[in-house]
Amino acid sequence: MSFFFLIPIALLMGLAGLVAFLWALKSGQYEDLDGAAVRILIEDETPTRDEPAPPGNTRS
């Protein structure tokens, strides 16, 4: 009776996916799908606050 383990595992995995989707929806990740697609093309010009930008990669 291996499905006693397999079925709960399958259901939990599905549930995890569902929860992940609902969380993403709630945190506004579906608000701007077009924008999310093109934001990858934006170059980071300002270094993040914690880590200095690697030398040679700064433009102003």
């Binding site: 079925i7 399958a10 259901l11 599905g14 549930l15 996916g17 569902l18 989707f21 609902l22 929806l25 709630k26 579906y30």
Partner: peptide, 20 residues
């Protein structure tokens, strides 16, 4: 967002019940 949530839940349930 209500429709999207309802759709996600129905999709999850449909796939698992269909599997069974």
């Amino acid at each position: 967002s209500e429709l999207l949530r309802a759709l996600a839940v129905a999709g999850f349930a449909a796939i698992n019940i269909m599997l069974l």
